Every structure is written in structure tokens, then in C-alpha cells.
Computed example of a mutant assay.
Amino acid sequence: MPGSLFESGIIANDASVAERQNWRFPRQSRLLKTDEYSSVFNFRCGQSGNFVRVYAKPNHLTHARMGIVVGKKELRTAVARNLAKRTVREVFRTNQHDIPAVDIIVRIMKPFDRSNVLLVREELLQLLHKSKRCLGS
């Protein structure tokens, strides 16, 4: 399959089945309630990029949790919103073991399509790395 994630190097081909099972995005790794989203937004620790903005707040768990905000003003079609959410979930899922115990909200700020998904992934990885600064607050 040309242009797949395996060929681009985003996901390794040699990952064992056990490793892939650890890459799941279970319910415990998600922000689900309005209060959880509000507390992260009110903490006011965020990093911006061209396509996304990442808000972070330390949590008292042993793992990171993530929520996604995609507005209809930014991405008008459901197809575009679903692509954005899949892209963000995949980056979080494959890198969640490197992210400290923080609650993260990823907000899509600018429309993107398949042609620049790799740029968005790189930007999101950089912003997730920068979100470690919020731990000191």
C-alpha cells in the first residue's frame, strides 16, 4: 500500500502483537466529562502550533489522558473532522508511554487534509513534548 503509515516510518513494521496491544486507546486514557475538560482549560497552560493547540494540566494518575476538540467552524465536513480526530488519537496512542501523567486537550485550530497529515503529526509530537513544561506549575 503506497503512502501507508508503515512506509512513512510513523509505525514500525516489526512491532510484535504484544506491543501493538499496548498501543490501544482505552477509556481510562480519555477525558470524558465536561468538568475534566473545564479543569484543563482553566489551568491555562497551552502550547500552539500552526494546526493544533495543546492544553495540559498535571493529573494525579499514573498515565496521561487526552481529549480532542474539533469545531465545525474549523473543519466543516464530518470527513475532515474524523480525519483530524484519527490523526490526533494515533499520535497519542503510539506515544502515550513517553507522555508524563498529564491531562491533555488537543484543539484543532486550522484545517488540514491528507496531504499535510505528516506535518500535523510532527507538530503534535513537538507540542506534546513541550507540554511537560506544565508539570512545574
Rank of each mutant, 00 (worst) to 15 (best):
L32Q: 13
G136I: 11
S38R: 15
E36C: 03
R93D: 00
F41I: 07
V117S: 06
I11N: 04
D98R: 14
A56W: 02
N22H: 14
A64R: 12
E122S: 15
V40H: 03
F51Q: 00
A15F: 13
I68H: 05
N82V: 00
A84R: 11
I11F: 10
D98I: 01
L83F: 09
V17F: 15
V102G: 01
T62Y: 08
V102P: 03
R44M: 02
Q47W: 07
L5K: 13
E19R: 13
R53C: 02
T94N: 10
Q28H: 14
R44Y: 03
D113Y: 11
G71N: 08
V52W: 01
I108G: 03
L119F: 12
T87K: 10
S4Q: 05
R20L: 15
V120Q: 07
G9V: 04
Q47H: 11
L31F: 11
V120F: 08
G49W: 04
S39Y: 00
A56V: 00
F51R: 04
D35N: 12
M1Q: 09
R86Q: 08
D98P: 00
Q96L: 03
D98F: 09
R24I: 05
P100Y: 08
L127A: 10
D35M: 06
P26Q: 06
L75I: 04
N50M: 00
N59M: 09
I108S: 03
K110H: 14
K132D: 01
I68P: 05
L75G: 02
V88D: 08
